[in-house]
């Protein structure tokens, strides 16, 4: 079982998702974002960088996050980022369509590329990862794109090639939505994604 730490913002959204809901049991430690700089991360296998984090404090800790990854550990990032800071970060903003599912012959535009990946074989379905996106990544060669848009932009990908660790990066922001009581699919996503982080094949 991996030990998971969360860079915790103390917002009502993070408070619900990571501290007080059914998902709190997957989290070994909440590290207040204002204390991350001094925190010792050695005991942890996974560090989650939630969506809607304080951008200034995230900036201050980027090297620390890279150092953590480079010891062979797992970094997870949710949601759109405020600037390009991920390894070989290539982001394309796209306006959010909150209303796609109201359109005739509704198509979220999402495609599952890695149907045999442990996350999608044993933990979640594509529907559990379907609400809306805020943009796409164009990962570098060698990254594993699990979910993409129908034109190939990455919505969820795993990067084992650009550092000595593993980065699970997604434009999805289930922690924000679940913490805001908005978008039921995000609950299903977290019910599978967090157990996968804990004990699945990453």
């Amino acid at each position: 079982m991996r030990k998971i730490a969360v860079m915790y913002s103390g917002s009502s959204q993070h408070w619900r998702t990571y501290k007080t809901s059914e998902f709190a049991r997957y989290i070994d430690q909440l590290i207040p974002v204002r204390q991350l700089e001094e925190a010792n991360l050695e005991a942890f296998d996974v560090l989650i960088i939630p969506s809607q984090t304080h951008t200034g404090l995230l900036d201050q800790n980027i090297q620390k996050i890279y150092d953590f990854a480079n010891t062979g550990k797992v970094v997870v990032t949710f949601g759109p980022q405020h600037r390009d800071w991920l390894p070989m970060h290539k982001w394309e903003f796209r306006p959010t369509n909150f209303w796609w599912w109201l359109e005739p012959n509704a198509d979220s535009g999402l495609r599952l590329l890695e149907t045999t990946h442990d996350l999608f074989k044993n933990y979640i379905t594509l529907e559990d990862a379907t609400w809306h996106q805020h943009g796409v990544y164009w990962p570098s060669e060698g990254c594993e794109v699990l979910v993409s848009t129908n034109d190939g932009g990455a919505v969820l990908y795993i990067d084992r090639v650009n550092t000595n660790g593993v980065w699970v990066n997604t434009t999805l922001d289930p922690d924000y939505h679940f913490g805001s009581y908005f978008m039921p699919a995000t609950e299903r996503f977290l019910r599978g994604f967090l157990p996968w982080l804990k004990k699945g094949q990453i």
Partner: peptide
């Protein structure tokens, strides 16, 4: 605003 750190 609604995203503030309420523990702080």
């Amino acid at each position: 605003l609604g995203f503030v750190d309420q523990e702080f």
